[in-house]
């Protein structure tokens, strides 16, 4: 999906004549949002998880060395069984839902996001997702340190199955939003960690999915950039049919989400209005 940021609709060049009208050109992000409004989204976007289990560590002893170590330790069975990170999760999310996921550290929040995003296939149970999905997950997009920013943007799009959207204009828009245009041809590894985070965020931002998945992505870069990112992301959230958000900030969950679930050691223990769930969470975990 390309969008032209060089000739914004409605913009009139000031130098065209005395009687020209100066209308402020929309930013690339505003154009993306305007385009979003004209697009027909999958009306039946939905997420459905049925008795989903995720178990880590089941394959530990699949190597010859692993089998030998397990035999020597004398506890192969426990390790072979693995650690159940998600336990029989049933979840249905429909258009209009802004779902917050709350829970203590290690409760399975990010794992659940990865299952919904299709990164982790369920070990047991089924996952059905209708509509396009965009995970904005804190760990990054698989950027290569020794490649220039432009190539890394394209790589980020490829890794998130968005290569057909790639265009020079989109690259420019992402670099502009990340305030990194002057470093377009520099290697990713030459950027500061704050700059790297800005590029990751901006690359994730420029997409118009039916289902937006967010994992603690709001606090990136300096104060100005955080403010700009938050504003852009909130606008994004408003226009996306389904939003699923993991955050440790109760305020953010309360502002964004109309429904929340509470996870406890991989099990979904509560599902309901955000205020109620946050109150239960506060009571149980202080």
């Amino acid at each position: 999906m390309d969008f032209d940021i060089t000739a914004p609709a409605g913009a009139v060049d000031e130098q065209d004549g005395d009687d020209s009208v100066n209308i402020m050109a929309p930013t690339a992000f505003e154009q993306l949002m305007a385009q979003r409004d004209t697009e027909v989204h999958t009306s039946n976007a939905s997420v459905s998880l049925d008795r989903v289990d995720v178990i880590f560590g089941q394959h530990v002893y699949r190597t010859v060395k692993g089998v030998l170590v397990g035999m020597l330790r004398g506890t192969p069975k426990e390790v072979m069984t693995g650690r159940k990170v998600l336990d029989a999760i049933d979840l249905k999310v429909s258009p209009g839902d802004r779902l917050g996921i709350v829970g203590h550290n290690g409760s399975g929040k990010t794992t659940l996001l990865k299952v919904i995003a299709g990164i982790l296939p369920p070990v047991h149970g089924t996952r059905n997702v209708a509509g396009s999905i965009a995970p904005v997950i804190a760990q990054g997009l698989g950027f290569e340190p020794d490649l220039p920013l432009r190539l890394n943007i394209k790589l980020g799009l490829a890794y998130s199955n968005r290569l057909p959207q790639h265009s020079r204009d989109l690259e420019d828009a992402i670099l502009d939003f990340a305030e990194l245009t002057e470093f377009a041809d520099a290697q990713f590894q030459t950027l500061s960690s704050g700059m790297q985070a800005r590029l990751t965020f901006a690359t994730s931002l420029f997409q118009t999915p039916d289902i937006l998945i967010l994992d603690e992505v709001f606090a990136t870069g300096d104060a100005n950039f955080v403010r700009k990112s938050q504003a852009a992301m909130m606008e994004h959230i408003e226009r996306t049919p389904i939003v699923i958000l993991v955050s440790h900030s109760a305020g953010l969950i309360r502002d964004v989400c109309n429904r929340s679930i509470l996870l406890d050691h991989g099990r979904m223990v509560e599902d309901g209005p955000t205020d109620k769930i946050l109150d239960i969470y506060a009571q149980r975990y202080g």
Partner: peptide
């Protein structure tokens, strides 16, 4: 050899 990328993308 692409463990990190595989763990963060649905590709």
């Amino acid at each position: 050899s692409r463990k990190g990328t595989c763990q963060n993308t649905a590709m």
